[in-house]
Amino acid sequence: MRTAVIQFPGSNRDRDMIAAITKISGRPPVVVWHKETALPEVDLVVLPGGFSYGDYLRSGAIAARAPIMEAVRAAADRGVLVLGVCNGFQILTEAGMLPGVLMRNATLRFVCREVRLEVVDTRSAFTSRYRKGEVIRCPVAHMDGNYFAEPETLKRIEDDHRVAFRYAAGTNPNGSIHDIAGIFNANRNVLGMMPHPENLIEPAHGGSDGRALFESLFDSVAA
């Protein structure tokens, strides 16, 4: 599988993402600096976690207007898979590639801990290796993960089965509406999620529940 990881100034989970992709796929991703205007030929583009531009203005707002994002948008329109984790999810919403917005955590506290995620929909290149309704472990680490969308947008997301992951009962760490932890775009080739599957891929991490997300992706390209 050919992958690219985009680096913005302030990305800090890029190395974790590169390590996870390299370990699971056996092939290191191409690392693309945000000032580039073109992407290499790839099957998957990843926007990693971090604090791009120090969260200035709004989390992900400046990065969403970076030169590379036009190419990411065009790739997504062609059907290339795009995964945004944490700050990457914030960037995708700010870029208008996913609906809604990620607001300050309702607790006003940075949250860094493990949560439980319900796998809501397995009909995607990102989630096919999970079982529907399965509850997995996954770490979160963010200040602005409180997902919000207007009622009509929320209804559309739910009606179209575009919620990929929800925080399992009692583990919503940020006040997200409908316990939403991750959503797909309408074509289901773009996924944004606040939790970090790249940080739970092997026993040394204390678990490997995140691994199936990457294996799903590699399956979808091999198929």
Partner: peptide
């Protein structure tokens, strides 16, 4: 519209 406000919220 393009940057200063996020008109979703």
């Amino acid at each position: 519209e393009k940057l200063l406000a996020n008109t979703v919220i």
